[in-house]
């Protein structure tokens, strides 16, 4: 008889583990001018405490979780608890220290200022 039980031992942290929250991508608008990039993301039901914005090495990650309280018997449910998450590639030239985010009416507004060095410049021609 084979006494090796290790092969059949399942571990909780296995890859196929059920995800805790369904993950959906928020719809976004992105605007840009000379000074900054502006990002709007729809995240209805997400409270300020549950939003994270992470900028690192040319990657911008926004994420927000929401819980939907169930009350009594549901007649229909078209949405539930989710994690909104989306990752963007952003230019390295952002001024990360000045990034600022606000959340209003379920919309995340993110200001990503460009670093001084990355702003367009007009070069004056000097006559000799």
């Amino acid at each position: 008889m084979n006494e090796n039980t290790e092969l059949t031992t399942r571990k909780a942290e296995m890859l196929e583990k059920r995800q805790e929250l369904p993950r959906i991508t928020p719809v976004v608008d992105i605007y840009e001018n000379e000074d900054e990039i502006l990002l709007f993301a729809d995240m209805p039901g997400v409270a300020k405490e549950h939003v994270t914005v992470h900028v690192d090495n040319g990657k911008l990650e926004i994420s927000g979780t929401r819980k939907v309280e169930k009350k009594g018997a549901s007649s229909w449910e078209e949405f539930g608890a989710v994690e909104y998450r989306r990752v963007f590639s952003v230019p390295q030239s952002l001024d990360v220290a000045k990034v600022n985010a606000e959340l209003k009416e379920g919309v995340l507004r993110l200001h990503l200022p460009k670093a001084e060095a990355a702003k367009p410049r007009t070069i004056k021609i000097t006559a000799h």
Binding site: P22, R23, I24, T25, P26, V27, V28, D42, P44, V68, K70, K71, G72, A73, S74, S75, W76, E77, E78, F79, G80, R86
Partner: peptide
């Protein structure tokens, strides 16, 4: 693009998604 089974905030006919409960 955005993905997932139900991205965005609207149902197919352009209305917002809703939940409906009966608490007695």
């Amino acid at each position: 693009g955005p993905y997932g089974e139900n991205f965005g905030w609207r149902v197919a006919n352009g209305s917002p998604r809703t939940n409906f409960y009966d608490t007695g």
